[in-house]
Design a binder for these strands. Sequence first.
DNA 1: ATGAAAGCGCTAACAC
DNA 2: GTGTTAGCGCTTTCAT
Lengths: 342, 342
Amino acid sequence: MAVTIYDIAKEAKVSPSTVSRVLTSNAKVSPEKERAVRALIEKYNFQPNALAQGLSETQSRTIGLMVADIRNPYYAEVSVACEVAANKRGYKMFLSNARSNPELEVEILERFTSLRVDAIIQIGCRVDELESDPEYVKKVDNLSVPFVSTGVLDGSKRAYAFGIDSMAGIDLAFSHLLELGHEKIAFLGGWLRVRSTYQKWMRYIYLLGANGLPARTDYVQEGGYVFEAGVSCMRRLLALDDRPTAIIAVNDISATGAIAAIREEGLSVPEDFSIISHDNTLLSSVCVPLLTSVDYGYEKLGEGLVGTALRLAKHEIIPQETLLTPTLSVKNSCARPRKPVS
Amino acid sequence: MAVTIYDIAKEAKVSPSTVSRVLTSNAKVSPEKERAVRALIEKYNFQPNALAQGLSETQSRTIGLMVADIRNPYYAEVSVACEVAANKRGYKMFLSNARSNPELEVEILERFTSLRVDAIIQIGCRVDELESDPEYVKKVDNLSVPFVSTGVLDGSKRAYAFGIDSMAGIDLAFSHLLELGHEKIAFLGGWLRVRSTYQKWMRYIYLLGANGLPARTDYVQEGGYVFEAGVSCMRRLLALDDRPTAIIAVNDISATGAIAAIREEGLSVPEDFSIISHDNTLLSSVCVPLLTSVDYGYEKLGEGLVGTALRLAKHEIIPQETLLTPTLSVKNSCARPRKPVS
DNA sequence: ATGAAAGCGCTAACAC
DNA sequence: GTGTTAGCGCTTTCAT
């Protein structure tokens, strides 16, 4: 069917090993033979069978990347950052979408294993949960290749984390709002069973106390990460007698939902409410107003995830958890609170 | 290193073939042996080496999917739809991102070839161009596996297209605007060198004539598919003495840019301008106002692309081009034009 | 520098 | 039913 090194070898009147040598450049080949072989490779547009290569080589120079849902711009950004980082180091990437389906998640892990990838990176899904699923931890610990994720897998000895310092992000958001003069700050969206959200929320509660502000339970509105979550959480905040003047949203999508709910009421951002979101994806630059958002530095995140994975593949000894400090991308969704009309 | 069927066979006191048989269930195996083998597979969490499987089998039950840029929600939607369609048929997907880089595009084609995928699907990049790159057509025609894309590759005998009827989308948008009473309709964003955009534009020009409306060159503003393109195209329309009252945007992203530009002027959508976009992605449901957008039916598109690819892989004879008719997702970005103040 | 040969892990004829 | 054997296409000793 397809052309093989044997076909090339026969036509070039050399041995298959010689063809293999020019392919891998692992050994010297005389210039004239090399030229002959290269000419035929060109002529037939020959592509060595990656399966056969992978079968005989010890490493595949391949990384498996699993994300929760590529349709979420956050995951799309991270995957591209990882792919760029991997390619830069001569590695290829297998990208898979768990579509937020726990069964698929396990299947993908198995598929990566059977593809003999050199490392696995997972972003989202079960690695994000506050309480790690012991079943999943066992699966991960049974892996024979390095495993890196943005979240910590509790109780795992084999999983490494390279993630974002969620608390530092809240620090940035909170002090930005304080500087503008806000004192009634709400926390919107997400689920507390997600570790990064839980950490954001804890830090938010802590900062309220540290700044002498009351911690009001009705200023914390859980509800998820989608647009509708933002809408309904915001509606609940709008229904309060004593409304907040500023909102920290768990991500860009829920923030856009919050803005929509605010507009429904005939109110506006940032005049009536200041909003800071997290992720700083496409959405935050496409929204009206442009969203002030906590930025993770996707390039660094990709570099870190891939770097960690490959260092592990080389059996280097590295810390089991590393955190990146986010920055604040200030845009147009925050302002000083309105003076109370007296 | 890793467990193989030989290890399993030895421990189960059967031959490797028997293990292979329970793996593939291609032949009968006695119940007790099967049980023994399955127990060991379980015990060692054995994953057959996909590389070795692919090497000895004739087909890999694998499809290579290349998209221009997964960060664009349109491509994200299409890839997920394709992945779902492929999985449903028992196929796995390799997803690759060309990152709008022509060199990468060729590399990905080669990589898919060397992974011995059963078919290749490409969405975006060079398959979208109005004038197909002959170099690329040659590459595609040299492929030994079926090739399907959303766009037509001119002069190719091996490339199949399963796409969207761009003209029908314009028909929907145009008549919706006409019914609302608009007569000054502009066309915003994109590049005419992209086939689908060119077709939209042609149809737009045709419909103007067919409805007795003048074709004004300053009502057509090319500029690309990103947010900034929408902003600058819209600014140019706003600078006209005789402004349009409705805008057909080439995609959701440029439409959000247009809205931002309109807001800059203190004007609003849909009160001052009606906007219809294309793609009906996440953005159109996250925007204020919600965007009326031409919807492609991503599920059907994915089914069609994958179905075409697999039918070709089975050497079925099918039409070289198939078009899907889009629908209009009516939301809140269109209204009747303001009565001219007399 | 180059060829012969073994082996990577699996599947599929082929015997029995 | 089950084992034996021959590939699948490549890399890599090991000779020469």
